[in-house]
Every structure is written in C-alpha cells, then in structure tokens.
Amino acid sequence: MASINISSIYTSVFILEGIPDLESFHMWLSIPLFIMYVIALSGNLLTLLLVMMEPRLHSPMYYFLCTLSLTDLVLSSSIAPMVFCIFWLNHKEISFLSCLVQMFFIHCFTSLESGVLLAMAFDRYMAICNPLHYTSALTNTLIVKIVIALVIRGTIVVTPCPWMASRLPYCQSHHIPHSYCDHMAVVTLSYTDTTINNAYGLTVVLIVIVFDVTFITVSYVLILRAVLRLSSKTAKSKAFGTCTSHIGIILTFYTLGLFSFLTYRIGHIAPYLHVILSILYLLIPPVLNPIIYGVRTQEIRTAALHLLTHCYIGPNVALDQ
C-alpha cells in the first residue's frame, strides 16, 4: 500500500505537450524554428572558429564574444532536440531527472547570458571611455575571473530551483503545457503549496535582471555620452550604429525573458502564444548575437574573408606550384 501511495505522488516521467492548441501545426512551426537553430549553430560555431584561428582577434572583446557564443550554443541546444522530437516524432515523454537537468541548464545559461551581456557592455565602456587603460585593465586573468564568477553565480542561484521542484509531489497531472521543462511550467503541476518556489524564482530573476540591466544601462549611458563628444561625424555615426544594434539585442533578450517569466504570474494570455514566445526567447538571441556582434564587426568580416581565402584559394595555389 505504501508503494502505491508513493508511486501516485512521485512521477518518473513527464509529458511535454509542445505548443498547446496548435498540435496540428507542429510540423509547419518546426520549419522556421529548425532554420533558426541551424543559423544559431553555424553562426556561433563560425564565431568560435574565427576567434580561435585569427591571432588579431585575441583580445578581451572577442574573448567575451566567444563566451557568449558558447552560452548560446548550450542554451539553444538545451531545448532544440526535445522540441524537434515533439514536433517531428511526437515523442513527448521526458524522464523526471532529464526534466530537472534541462531546467537547470536553461536557467543557468540564461543567467550566464545576461552576465556576459553585462561584461560586454563593460568591455565597450572601457574601450570607448577609457581607451588608454583598456589593455592594462582587461587582462586575460581578469577576463577568466569574470567568466568564472558569472558561471558560479548562475550555478548558485539556479541550483535550488530544480532541487526544490524535485521535492514537490506530482499526482494530479504529469502533462506539462510547454515544449521544454521551464521551472514554473513544472512547479504549477504540483498540488501542494508552491509559494516558496514562486518566491524564490521571482527573487532570482529580479536580482539577476535588476543588477545586470542597471549596470548595462549605466555603461551605455556613459558610452553614448562619450560618443556625443566625438568631433568626427563619421566616427559618431559608426559608434551610434554599433551601440544601437547592441542595445536592440539587449532589449530583445530581456523583453522576451520578462514576458515569458511574468506570464505565469499575470496570466490572461493564450498558452500557445506564451510557449511560442518562450521558445523564441531561447532561439532569437543565439541567432542574432553572431550577426550583430560578429558580422557587423570589421575584424570578424576580415577574419572570415581570410579563412575563406586560405581554404579555397590557398590549396589551388599550392597545387599550381
């Protein structure tokens, strides 16, 4: 009898429903999502390859860009395989442990991405506002310490979420109205009081977002003030274009993230729209980051051209000789 009660309270498998009310459109919806995932993979892998192979890109800005690319690869790959299994194979089962692991990676690397965006804003501030101290201040040792600190922060603040979720009983429903194991999507399935889980999740999000957004805002305000003091209109226009594109990426990341998070608490939105925007929240930044931070950067374009020349022209020259 005891074993029956335990099995009725604790589940070993969850069922991910994909996009509620749009199950018949899963195959069609998977096409743009798959294209986005391929672009995210190829763009971020290419960024890593270029920075590794080109000595001229071995500088603080590009080390942070590599960290961002690695974060985007993990973040997008944390959800994409399961999403496509649901959409293409109708395989919706995910083990309880796998669900908790996915939950940890999603939220940990979301926190890490926010921290890296803050680090990159600080890097731009130093490069524009304190160019004479840029190289001496942002040493390789300091960059490693910053990245390690961001990883530790994400691990510490996120680990309690899956741990607390694992201790909740789930017996009423094992069907998650989502395409991946989001913390609140899982917690809301429990029939017990989840006030502590909700409060902790809200606290973590607010602490991370308020801290990072505040200092990102301060950095770009100081950057824009320095840009306005430039005498050259060409330099001023180029700096404004760069800052605008960076701010656009940051606004996209935080707007979609806050929308996804607050929907569980505010409600009054169609479930399918919430799930679609939650998926885009984890796919759009990995798609845009290599374009905004990479393709629009002259040094990256030059390195890409050098790589293409080496791969396609170099071998032919060698053969001719």
Rank of each mutant, 00 (worst) to 15 (best):
Y264H: 14
V275F: 05
P285F: 02
F261S: 13
T255E: 07
G257K: 14
L282Q: 07
L256A: 05
I250H: 10
I276T: 07
L222A: 06
G267C: 10
P285Y: 03
S232T: 06
K238G: 02
Y272P: 02
L222S: 07
R265Y: 15
Y220R: 05
I269C: 13
I276N: 04
K238E: 14
L288K: 02
K233T: 15
P271R: 07
L262W: 13
G257L: 14
G248Y: 08
F240N: 05
P271I: 11
L280V: 01
A226K: 09
L228Q: 08
H274T: 12
V221Q: 10
L251P: 01
L262Y: 15
I249A: 13
F240L: 13
S260F: 11
I269Y: 11
L283I: 02
S245A: 15
P290S: 01
L288T: 03
S237Q: 13
L230Q: 09
Y220F: 13
I223P: 00
I284K: 00
Y264W: 08
G267V: 12
S232K: 07
H246I: 13
L273Q: 08
L224R: 05
L283N: 00
L283G: 01
L251E: 08
V227R: 02
I266D: 05
F261A: 15
K238Q: 12
A226Y: 03
K238M: 11
R229T: 06
I279K: 04
R225W: 07
Y281Q: 12
A226V: 01
N289Y: 00
V275C: 03
F253H: 15
I266R: 04
I276H: 04
L222M: 12
P285E: 09
K238V: 04
I269M: 12
I250Y: 11
T263V: 13
L224V: 06
Y264Q: 08
Y272R: 11
Y264K: 05
G267S: 12
K233M: 14
V227G: 01
I266G: 00
I247Y: 08
P286H: 00
S245R: 11
T234K: 10
F253K: 12
G267P: 08
A235I: 05
I276G: 00
P271H: 10
V227N: 01
L258E: 14
H246G: 12
L256G: 06
L256N: 08
G257S: 15
T244P: 01
K238C: 04
I269R: 11
A226L: 04
S237G: 02
K233L: 15
L230F: 06
T242F: 07
L280E: 00
K233I: 14
L228S: 07
G248K: 09
S278Y: 02
H268F: 14
N289H: 00
S237H: 04
I279A: 01
F240G: 00
L262F: 15
G267N: 13
A235Y: 13
L224Q: 00
T252A: 11
V221T: 10
L258Q: 14
L222R: 12
I247T: 14
A270L: 15
N289P: 04
G248R: 04
I284G: 01
T242M: 11
A270R: 14
T244Q: 10
A239K: 03
I269V: 15
L277F: 11
G241K: 02
P271N: 08
P285T: 04
S237W: 01
P285D: 06
A270C: 12
P286W: 02
K236R: 15
I269S: 10
Y220N: 07
I247D: 03
R225C: 03
Y254M: 03
T234R: 11
R265C: 02
I276M: 15
V275H: 11
A226I: 04
I269L: 14
